[in-house]
Every structure is written in C-alpha cells, then in structure tokens.
Amino acid sequence: MGIGGPQLHTGPEPRPAGRAVGTTRVHLLVAILLAALTIVAFVSVGGHLLPVGWLIPLLLVLAAAQVCMQLLYYMRLKWDRRIFALLFGGGVALAVLIVLAVHAMLSL
C-alpha cells in the first residue's frame, strides 16, 4: 500500500489484522541467521581474530545486518505499509545524526 491517499481506507475490506506473512519457516531461518551473525561478532572479538582496524567496521556491518533483518522480517516492514518504513527510517536517520554530530562536536 502507498503512503496515503484516500484509497488507503476506502477499500471494501480492511486487511485482516496480522495477515500471516511471517511463516514459521521464515521465523526460524531469520533466527538462525541472526544467531550466526551474533556468534561471528562475539567470537571475532573474544578470539582476537582480526586487527582492530578491520574488527570495528566488521562489527558495525554485522550489527546493521541484524537490525535490518529484524526490521524487515520480524517486524514485517517488508510486507507492511510503506509509511511505517518511511517514518521509522526518519527516526533512525535522526538517531544516527544525533549520535555522530554530538560525539563529533563534544570531542572537538
């Protein structure tokens, strides 16, 4: 569904709440992937497998991947109204801006 427009709630039938889009298979698959990424993250830090210069970007990428998977599949952004993603994306963008800018300016 699009962002808005009257067609939003003028359809003949409301979408049944909680349409079964996330099946057990998807849930398990995502859970296994998330667990794998978490293990990689913890082992690479605990086992000192990589130089620090490589480790930090790796951890950030792993975290970003996990966050995206949870948002898309667990929280169903992949299937739900686009405005959810738009609003939440705005929140995340602002969050990143705040963290980076405040940190940068306080460490001047």
Binding site: G4, P6, L8, H9, T10
Partner: peptide, 14 residues
Amino acid sequence: VVTIINMRAPGMTP
C-alpha cells in the same frame, strides 16, 4: 500523525 495520515475523509488526498 496517525489522525492526519489515517482519518481523512474520502477525496482528501495529501
């Protein structure tokens, strides 16, 4: 936010 996005009368496009 929810009211303005969801509660508009038909034809009240953005």
